Simulated assay, not measured.
Amino acid sequence: MSDIAKDAWRRYLIQLQAHPLRTKAITAGALAGCSDVIAQKISGIKKLQLRRLLLIMLYGFAYAAPFGHFLHKLMDVLFKGKKGNRTVAMKVLLEQLTASPWNNMMFMLYYGLVVEGRPWPAVKDRVLSVYPTVQTTAWKFWPIVGWLNYQYVPAQFRVLFAGFAGSSWGIFLNLKARSAAAPAIKKA
């Protein structure tokens, strides 16, 4: 079994080197799908909602991975040649003040408008009520991930590392989005 895993990892690294954005996008889509399956099971959904699963995978593939890929490229440009704890702290702070709020807002909007197919006023109301809690929770989780990522993870693996952490975060967001939608669904 070890040889199979080593060979798969070697092939993954070759693809990551040759086609970094495509490889990160496919990986992010798969990780988003895994987190959605887990979120569906935790929330008590008996039969897997395939449409929802595919739309969440599309989000990881088409948005999350490209955003992360280019964010880390930008960070490398902004902090070119700088190392050390102060630089890591500045990267984490910049990411938490810009990318984190943006990404959480984008996910909540995407989930409401695309995944659930709800009208804009309903999505807007839900985002206004739930977003502060989501973002506050994000600021308890993502700075630790960011610190580990910038301090210890080589640049080519940062999106992958964030993707694995994002799988856990995706479960939280899915459950939060679903729980916020439940009262509105019951009223309809």
Rank of each mutant, 00 (worst) to 15 (best):
G33I: 05
S35W: 05
V37F: 07
I38W: 06
Q40E: 03
K41L: 10
K41I: 08
S43N: 13
S43H: 09
I45A: 13
K46N: 06
K46Y: 10
L48E: 00
L50F: 11
R51C: 10
L54M: 12
L55G: 02
I56G: 01
I56C: 04
Y59E: 02
G60M: 02
F61Q: 01
F61K: 02
A62N: 04
A64Y: 12
A65L: 03
A65H: 03
F67H: 11
G68K: 04
G68F: 07
H69Q: 11
L71V: 12
L71A: 11
K73G: 13
L74E: 07
L74V: 07
K80T: 10
G81K: 08
K83Y: 13
G84Y: 01
N85E: 13
R86V: 13
T87C: 14
K91A: 10
K91W: 08
V92M: 07
P101A: 02
W102T: 14
N104K: 06
N104C: 10
F107T: 04
L109V: 05
Y111T: 08
G112S: 07
L113V: 09
V114Q: 00
V114W: 03
V114F: 03
G117F: 10
W120F: 15
A122M: 14
A122D: 13
V123L: 07
K124P: 01
K124Q: 11
D125Q: 14
R126H: 10
V127K: 04
V127D: 06
L128Y: 04
S129L: 15
V130M: 10
V130P: 02
Y131E: 06
Y131Q: 01
Y131H: 06
Y131R: 03
T133K: 15
V134H: 01
V134Y: 06
T136S: 13
T137P: 09
A138M: 06
A138S: 12
F141V: 15
P143Q: 01
P143I: 01
I144K: 12
V145H: 07
Y150S: 00
Q151M: 09
P154F: 07
A155E: 12
Q156N: 13
Q156M: 12
F157I: 05
F157V: 06
L160Q: 01
